[in-house]
């Protein structure tokens, strides 16, 4: 039982990161019906930019740990958001009226480009965050090992997700995003500037992805230029699992995927962990073809 609970918390911690990245996929998909395969690389950029800013500005030394990290998170989110918007402008906007899969290939090209740019700038070796920036306190809850940072990471992810959810559901801009997701041309007729909505989506999604990258860097300490593929694929799986285009779905999907992986590794086999996760995904899709929280769309005739 104790091991089970421990594995559950292990899974939730990883799942929180997946969920945060998955939001970027799902938001872009919701509005553009585009799978942004370069999103994982934006996540990597978050991790690398965070490292550069952290070491060059020495924020945590100057203004203290909490404030320093907060400023760092905001800076990284801002920079990655700008990068995301640039990506949209260069690789996706020219393809908006084209077949959907063309944009997918453009995204894959962009992904290769972004990844190799990082390799050339930073070199191929693993980059490492300075050791012992984070307080290494461990909470001991009924014999479970839970590092404090893990709790903070999960809390931060959940906070960002909730903020995003409220933003989408309760504000005028959020309503515009939802409207554009449902029907772009109708939204345009209602006076919504769809181009701005798309730009906004490409600022928000990458910002969250960049934040996730920074958190991974801060907590695990080790980043490399190909990590975006691994995390991106997991997050994309999570977004589909929850029903792509659906924001709560991405959160549920991410957390669930993390837990499936941890429990699969614990009780079936570590080596087959990813295969187990994909099997569960396929089974779920057979039962619910549009994911857990995806809408059931009847074919229009």
């Amino acid at each position: 039982m104790e091991e089970f609970l421990q594995q559950l918390t292990n899974g939730l911690a990883v799942g929180g990161i997946y969920a945060l990245i998955a939001l970027g996929y799902t938001m872009v998909y919701g509005v553009l019906k585009l799978i942004n395969f370069a999103h994982g690389d934006l996540f990597t950029y978050g991790a690398y930019l965070g490292l550069t800013l952290l070491t060059s500005l020495a924020l945590t030394d100057r203004v203290g740990f909490a404030l320093g990290v907060l400023v760092l998170v905001l800076m990284v989110m801002g920079l990655v958001a700008i990068l995301g918007a640039m990506l949209e402008r260069a690789a996706y906007r020219p393809l908006r009226e084209s077949p959907r899969l063309s944009a997918v290939v453009s995204a894959l090209g962009a992904s290769i480009f972004l990844q190799n740019t990082l390799m050339l700038v930073y070199g191929a070796r693993f980059q490492v965050y300075p050791d012992e920036i984070l307080p290494a306190a461990t909470l001991d809850v009924f014999g479970l090992y839970i590092p404090l940072m893990r709790v903070l990471i999960v809390l931060a992810s959940v906070a960002m997700m909730v903020a995003l959810y409220l933003f989408i559901q309760k504000t005028r801009i959020g309503t515009a995003i939802r409207a554009a997701a449902i029907d772009q041309s109708a939204a345009r007729l209602m006076g919504i500037d769809v181009n701005r909505v798309i730009l906004l989506v490409f600022l928000l999604g990458p910002a969250l992805g960049g934040a996730a990258g920074l958190m991974v860097g801060l907590y695990y300490g080790q980043v490399n230029f190909t990590m975006g593929w691994v995390y991106g694929m997991k997050a994309f799986t999570a977004a589909i699992l929850g029903g792509i285009g659906n924001i709560p779905g991405a959160m549920v999907g991410g957390l669930l995927l993390g837990v499936i992986e941890a429990l699969g590794a614990a009780y079936v086999s570590i080596a087959w962990k990813d295969a187990i996760a994909f099997c569960v995904l396929i089974l779920i899709l057979i039962v619910r073809p549009t994911g857990l929280l995806g809408e059931r769309v009847a074919d229009k005739i």
Binding site: V14, Y220, Q222, E261, I270
Partner: peptide, 11 residues
């Protein structure tokens, strides 16, 4: 290539 091996370490 993953970052979190706590599940494996726990096992």
């Amino acid at each position: 290539k993953e970052s979190d091996y706590t599940a494996i370490l726990t096992k």
